[in-house]
Amino acid sequence: MSESPEPLLSVQGLEKHFPITKGLIKRQVAAVKAVDGLSFDVVKGETLGLVGESGCGKTTTGRLITRLLEPTGGKIVFEGRDISHMSQSALRPLRRDMQMIFQDPYSSLNPRHTVGAIVGAPFRIQGVRTEHGTKKAVQDILELVGLNPEHYNRYPHEFSGGQRQRIGIARTLALKPKLIIADEPVSALDVSIQAQVVNLLEDLQNELDLTYVVIAHDLSVVRHISDRVAVMYLGKIVEIADRKDLYESPMHPYTTALLSAVPVPDVKRRSERERIRLQGDVPSPINPPAACRFHTRCWKAQEICRTVEPPLAQLDVRHQVACHFPENVPSDAVPEDAGTPVPG
């Protein structure tokens, strides 16, 4: 996984502000800064995991990349082409290469269409003709995702949640896309089914050379599936690094707190685990805290955190952090105030 010169997807300073309007003339009084200046690259064949709590803008990011939403600012470059403000008609041919897997397998499939119609829709819309007809192609894909090809004429309600998610994945794969954005692909599924779908996504990636952006709130699933992980907080990336680095030596206090908050099924050591408990909830993105957005909940916050916004800085190989007082910094650049976290 070397840094290739041409990433498949490159996002630079991406912003999405949703206006809040008031009164008859819909005067804009404020904006929800759902995504506020994101930059990252996704290289072909890798999986980028986007984690964060609700309201951090991870879903909005997914919708911006697939251009289901139009960005307020910044650039999205897919295969060298700037698609940030491309018209819907110009985008349509590109949609073949860029597909999305949705969270809820119940609402993302039309209940009045058969599986064949659902998975065949991309062929119809894109006007793609296959050698042995659409039906054969659809049945091949159904088989690929572990469904019975004979279920071609069944309706979504005849399937379980896990099978429906497979139908959604089959539709995504129909036209052999290059990039797949998966928004919480397993969070609606039972534990035993989650593992099936995670394994399926991995198999498909190896088989079809896919690139994933996986959006999820479950840190264990993200660690399992991703090569690189970006942690978001209130519309910004606070840390982005290779999987191993992020989970083994997190630098941002928020990442550390997130990781220590995950309940771990280890009964023997449950009393001795060191926990960092954040106070309160995530602030509202309408009026995010000034400067470092995490300072209201951070145990290391100093005056500078309230006045100067920390830039996303490269502190290690492929490891970027936006914090004035990062932890686990490898070299001599340890800041003087890197105190020990307050447990409890």
Binding site: S160, G162, Q163, D190, V191, S192, I193, Q194, A195, Q196, V198, N199, E202, L219, S220, V221, R223, H224, R243, Y247, L259, V262, V264, P265, D266, R269
Partner: peptide
């Protein structure tokens, strides 16, 4: 086996239960 765990080394593959409830 279905559950990825943060407290252990990352396993290459999860071991799901086949079928559905």
């Amino acid at each position: 086996g279905s559950m990825p765990r943060l407290d252990r080394e990352r396993t290459e593959r999860l071991m799901p239960i086949k079928g559905t409830p």
